[in-house]
């Protein structure tokens, strides 16, 4: 079968890292009613890598990362993060695990009623309770500086542009020093220049904070800039796994339909 060949080829040709496994998903099934969204999905995220998950709208990309932080509960299969099965954790253990994971939402999800400073302070004072006022201020300033938003500290989210909101949201995520970053379509709805800025920021965050990241996207340019390894989902299953170069050279029709629209520059 062609699809089986594609996956097995990709498995042999992918980076096959010897690094530590951070996330290990096995035989994941998630459905809504009688409609399966993810079926028998397995993947791994290795230490310090950027894994890009590509796929058409409705292929289950966002559902996958929401299952990882248990915003959605999988029907069957397992998700091990740092060796712990997410589906079997109690509330306390889940809260402990979530502290290590940064989640950048598609919409940014900044708290409308708070200023940017308060948005960053919100997770910080609840997760890093031992920090003094001065240390909190320092961390907020540093996180905003890293995303180039030092001058927006006292602004409300509604006063920022789409790209700035995404960056502020990224600052809120990195301010608590996560070990894993999950990006849900980070460049959706942004112009190409701002998209490139966000993609570069994702790389910078990985280098500076030594994070392992999963980037959900259907933006090929974002994938080209950020990916160490790429997985394509189709109908809730892994369709192809490999490097971005392998994807670009693939003759498969579905893969080509993704890449032919925006050829490499």
């Amino acid at each position: 079968m062609e699809q089986d060949n594609i996956i097995s080829n990709a498995e042999t040709s992918s980076t096959a890292p010897s690094a530590k496994t951070i996330i290990d998903v096995k035989g994941l099934y998630k459905g809504f009613g009688n409609v399966p969204v993810l079926s028998n999905l397995s993947l791994q995220l290795f230490e310090n890598e950027n894994l890009v998950v590509l796929g058409k709208s409705g292929s289950g990309k966002s559902v996958l990362i929401k299952c990882m932080v248990r915003l959605l509960t999988a029907n069957s299969g397992s998700i091990h993060i740092f060796g712990k099965n997410v589906n079997e954790l109690d509330d306390g253990e889940l809260a402990e695990l979530r502290v290590k994971i940064g989640f950048l939402f598609q919409s940014g999800a900044l708290y409308d009623s708070m200023t940017i400073r308060e948005n960053l302070e919100f997770p910080l004072i609840r997760i890093k309770k031992h920090l003094s006022r001065k240390e909190i201020d320092q961390k907020i300033e540093e996180a905003l500086e890293n995303v180039g938003l030092s001058d927006t500290m006292n602004k409300m989210p509604s006063q920022l542009s789409g790209g700035m909101r995404k960056r502020a949201s990224l600052a809120r995520t990195i301010v608590v020093d996560p070990m894993i970053m999950l990006y849900d379509e980070p460049t959706t709805g942004l112009d190409p220049v701002t998209s490139d800025e966000i993609s570069t920021l994702i790389n910078n965050v990985q280098k500076k904070y030594n994070t392992s990241s999963i980037i959900i996207t259907h933006d090929i340019e974002c994938a080209r800039t950020t990916a160490d390894r790429v997985i394509m989902l189709n109908k809730g299953e892994v369709y192809l796994e490999g490097t971005i170069e392998e994807f670009e050279q693939s003759t498969d029709e579905l893969i080509q339909s993704f890449f032919k629209i925006r050829p490499p520059q």
């Binding site: 915003l71 809260a95 979530r98 919100f122």
Partner: peptide, 8 residues
């Protein structure tokens, strides 16, 4: 959801 994933 953002609040929930930030352990609040």
């Amino acid at each position: 959801d953002a609040m929930e994933v930030s352990s609040t």
